[in-house]
Amino acid sequence: MKKIHLYALSLLFLAGYAQGQSNDHAPAKLPDLKSGEAVATFAGGCFWALEEGMNQLKGVREVVSGYAGGTVKNPTYEQVGTDRTGHAESVQVYYDPKVVSYPQLLEAFFAGHDPTTLNRQGPDAGRDYRSVAFYRTPEEKAAIMAAIKETNESGHYSGKVVTEVTPLTVFYPAEMYHQNYFALHPNQPYIQSVSLPKVQKLRKAMVGHLKNSTSLTMVD
């Protein structure tokens, strides 16, 4: 996602408009929170991979891609891509805490991206791709800090975690065409080269907590 893909996305938009599908560029609607559910919000680079990875966990009902951490109201993908809104590409996870705990979501989050690279994930650079763990309660903040300490002490990464720990103010859902993008476009070059390895990494770390144990594979 990435500037080299904006032109292709623009072409897709024009084609969709011609076919009466322009609503794909309308923002998605947030689902209602069901009884007993909880919600968590994370940013870890391109939201296509993080959405797919989190959605594969047992106990997760739905994941919505969107924008958080900035000051501009109702931002568009194009605005966030300028890196001037303060927002990061983020995901909001609706889950059953009786099946998957918040610390387990944090484990998946820290496994599904590189939390040691400042304002960058792989080929994607800018604060809109920064690593952020948003919290809603003091308990969530404490869990995030504990997860960062554990990640640093594990030696899994050569560098130290630079993930921001930030209270959530508002989450804006991204456009409809971004939702479930990984699942709907598995052969897209960016998905294959950048997103898929991140999802595979998350799955490897969360064995035993997956809805489906079938491995994802690269397309030749």
Rank of each mutant, 00 (worst) to 15 (best):
I148V: 15
K149V: 13
K149R: 14
E150A: 15
E153R: 12
E153H: 06
E153N: 15
E153V: 12
S154N: 09
G155D: 05
G155K: 07
H156F: 10
Y157W: 15
G159C: 01
G159A: 13
G159Y: 06
K160H: 11
K160M: 12
K160S: 15
V161P: 07
V162H: 04
V162L: 01
T163A: 09
T163I: 11
V165Q: 11
V165C: 11
V165I: 12
T166Q: 14
T166M: 13
T166C: 06
T166F: 02
P167Q: 13
L168V: 01
L168R: 02
T169I: 12
T169R: 10
T169E: 13
T169G: 11
F171I: 08
Y172A: 04
Y172V: 03
P173I: 10
P173T: 10
P173V: 09
P173R: 10
A174Y: 08
E175G: 09
E175H: 08
M176G: 11
M176F: 00
M176R: 14
Y177V: 03
Q179N: 02
Q179C: 04
N180Q: 13
N180E: 07
N180P: 00
N180K: 14
Y181K: 04
Y181Q: 07
Y181E: 01
Y181I: 01
Y181C: 02
F182A: 09
F182D: 09
A183L: 02
A183G: 02
L184I: 00
H185S: 01
H185T: 02
H185C: 00
P186H: 09
P186Q: 08
Q188R: 04
P189M: 07
Y190L: 00
Y190F: 12
I191G: 03
Q192E: 10
S193T: 14
S193H: 11
V194N: 08
V194D: 04
V194I: 13
S195W: 02
L196K: 13
L196D: 03
P197D: 03
P197H: 06
P197C: 06
